[in-house]
């Protein structure tokens, strides 16, 4: 028996999403069991089955070096601060003097 992971994609939109897993002796049987277990009400229009043994995994330790890379992000706060300064300077100019 092999364990398969089931992925489904809905017609027209979204990405393939993981739906669950099942055990089957071969690919044909896996396809049949997947349809009857996971797509009884049209939950997907396309299906991928991947034998669990064939999944190449990257764990947190492997991914960790890229967790902390602030130079790859920019939240735009410097520019926003400048625009805010400009706006308040402009409104100070037009304010009637007391």
């Amino acid at each position: 028996m092999r364990t398969y992971e089931v992925f489904l994609k809905r017609a027209g939109k979204e990405e393939f999403r993981h739906a669950g897993a099942l055990d089957a002796p071969d690919d044909d049987m896996a396809r049949l069991l997947a349809r009857e277990s996971y797509v009884r009400r049209g939950e997907g229009s396309l299906m991928w089955l991947v034998a669990r043994a064939n999944i190449v995994e990257g764990d947190s330790d492997f991914l960790e070096p890229n967790f902390d890379k602030p130079h790859r992000h920019n939240d735009g706060s410097n520019i926003a601060a400048r625009r805010k300064r400009q706006r308040s300077a402009a409104s100070a100019d037009t304010e009637p003097s007391a």
Binding site: G20, A21, L22, D23, E36, S37, R40
Partner: peptide, 26 residues
Amino acid sequence: LAKTQDEIGHAHLLYMVAADMGVKSR
């Protein structure tokens, strides 16, 4: 018939999840 298939299907999904916890096999 459809409801029965659903219920057995629910058991199937749950036994899969439970077995993957490595405490007991299905």
